[in-house]
């Protein structure tokens, strides 16, 4: 028996608006030209911590969607922590290596792959409802790519020569806090209420992942061709 469609009539326009916002928002991220070296270590630390945080919330919509995808499949504490840790370790490695110019991958390659990584995770969420150990490896690999994306942003922002390590560490810490905030937000909005429902995967994971996959696919195309 088919269940009646009880969605309110404004559901579709809202989804379209949501998709439109997600497509447009990342474009608004702009680099600034600030005289960095006049600041003290504490000021640099707090400034880069804030920059790291704001690079996730509200500017890093692609990273937000990636973290949401990670969270969605199995919104329980243990698996989320495992995946988030893998992601954190991975992006910290490449962020550090990129900033020290040990690895150099151009932004026009990194950025579309970041978008593609979201497509992958979102589609996988639709294919399966169980969290396999291989997911952690996949998240780790994508984390490596996201780290290079963070490095690209940090390079654009500029790092003070004197407080290079402070800026690097505090930026990363800000990114982490941003990610934790996203996870907590997602848990409060979705996890608490629906994660134990029998229809959780079908009615929550599937539609949200579908929207995210479409948006991320568009970003991938946009970042390659436009």
């Amino acid at each position: 028996m088919n269940l009646p469609d009880t969605r309110p009539v404004y559901g579709k326009p809202l989804i379209l608006l949501f998709i439109l916002c997600m497509i447009i928002l990342p474009v608004s991220l702009q680099a600034h030209a600030i005289d960095l070296s006049r600041f003290s270590r504490t000021e640099i630390g707090s400034m880069y911590f804030e920059l790291g945080f704001t690079h996730i919330i509200p500017l890093g919509l692609d990273h937000i969607l990636f973290v949401i995808c990670i969270f969605l499949l199995n919104p329980k504490l243990k698996p989320v922590i495992w995946q988030a840790t893998a992601f954190t370790v991975a992006h910290s490695i490449t962020l550090g290596l990129s900033m020290y110019e040990v690895i150099v991958l151009p932004a026009h390659i990194v950025e579309p792959i970041i978008a593609l990584s979201i497509v992958f995770i979102a589609v996988e969420n639709m294919i399966t409802d169980e969290l396999k150990p291989s997911r952690i490896i996949v998240v780790f690999i994508f984390g490596l790519i996201h780290g290079m994306g963070f490095a690209s942003v940090l390079t654009d922002l500029g790092l003070p020569q004197k407080e290079f390590v402070t800026a690097l560490v505090t930026f990363n810490a800000g990114v982490e806090l941003g990610q934790i905030a996203v996870i907590i937000g997602a848990w409060l909005l979705v996890g608490v209420w629906f994660s134990k429902k029998s229809w959780y995967h079908k009615r929550v994971v599937m539609p949200i992942s579908l929207v995210i996959a479409v948006v991320a696919l568009w970003w991938t195309i946009e970042r390659v061709f436009f």
Binding site: P106, H108, I113, L116
Partner: peptide, 14 residues
């Protein structure tokens, strides 16, 4: 994803 990756590597220009 493999095809998309190839497209990125081949066509994505600065």
């Amino acid at each position: 994803v493999g095809i998309m990756l190839a497209v990125i590597l081949l066509f994505s220009k600065e």
